[in-house]
Design a binder for these strands. Sequence first.
DNA 1: TTGACAACCGAACGGATGGTCTCTAAACTA
DNA 2: TAGTTTAGAGACCATCCGTTCGGTTGTCAA
Lengths: 213, 213
Amino acid sequence: MKELSARQRRIIGFIGEFIGDRDYPPSIRQIQEACKISSTSVVDYNLRILEKLGYIRRDREVSRAIELLQPGGRRPRVATVPIIGTIAAGQPIPVPTADTWQSLDPDEMLEVPPDMVAGRENVYALRVKGNSMIDALVNDGDVVVMESTSAGQNGEMVAAWLKREQEATLKRIYREGSTVRLQPANETMQPILTDADNVEVQGRVIGAIRELS
Amino acid sequence: MKELSARQRRIIGFIGEFIGDRDYPPSIRQIQEACKISSTSVVDYNLRILEKLGYIRRDREVSRAIELLQPGGRRPRVATVPIIGTIAAGQPIPVPTADTWQSLDPDEMLEVPPDMVAGRENVYALRVKGNSMIDALVNDGDVVVMESTSAGQNGEMVAAWLKREQEATLKRIYREGSTVRLQPANETMQPILTDADNVEVQGRVIGAIRELS
DNA sequence: TTGACAACCGAACGGATGGTCTCTAAACTA
DNA sequence: TAGTTTAGAGACCATCCGTTCGGTTGTCAA
């Protein structure tokens, strides 16, 4: 695949910026002016190249008919996930119900990178309280994104409830016969070994997001 | 608030459908044809009403300059930041240039929660390599979102380059006279004390995102 | 009956816009 | 060295497109 010239990168950048700003694509002459090109024919020339390379799609003879494509094919969709509660060490992990699912108070919604959600369903988020989960590399105020499941494959990061200890924790899970090994993300720290009956998997962790002021 | 006429509802529906399909707004004549209106002036007449009622926004004298507004006011905005490189312990931290800024290879773009970016400019992202930054609660494969700055207020999490040690690190920064204290996010770990000349702040960390398979 | 008004229609104006043609100049190639 | 390709410049044109203007129809109240 050929490289893009500086001018072509500039054009794509401007189109994206323009659409982001005004919600409709720029005309050829607006591109010309913004990118300091002296002629519309040069813009047309470069747009043809960009179209051939799959960066944009054009409808001929139609004004402003420039569509910005993600060469991967995917349109940048927003994935919005509800934050249905908090997760803390000594507190049961909230599981999503039809009820919590419906309450979409916009303050409690979180937009996450779309590929984090991918094709999954039943994705929700929990805000982390306290710093008891520092061995999972999440701290007070972070948000963990979860997929609802009670299974949990070996090696996956899960939210688990330890019945005897009455404690919630985020660990990688490994089933070893009748016992379960819960391995912290920070590999310098020690795993927990307990029997399978004591562990209730409440969901699979598919991501974490930290926002600093 | 007045009710919309059937024709106006039809127009709005068509505009939405058109944009969803082609990613740019229709012209007045396309609306006319699709909604079986006999004159462009009628379309203009109705668009003016829709604009006054706040359903759309138009730029005058510009073709296809129709922006569909969500009557609620909130637009589900996506904030997209470029991943311009990697950050690792023994490797200089990439700083954004006009060049890296323009190259928006979509494979290297990341969508983040919009309020993370807020009003900031010059926001970029770095992929973390290696597990040397575990004391900042970020691990191999995580992505840190940065704001370009060379200042860094007391208490802020920054990406710093230690000149003597030739080492990159993520820490909270505290200036104490002529020395600088770099405090790990994990408060159980020890801070680094060094003199101010040895520290080069490369950017402010405004967020971190972890995606697990 | 009259007037006001909203909705609509048809045509035309003029600027905006995309496409194309010709010409240059530099880089590359045989 | 001559031919080819790539990138760009400037001018021109047919069409696209938003706007405007004059006119029509239907409704409703005075």
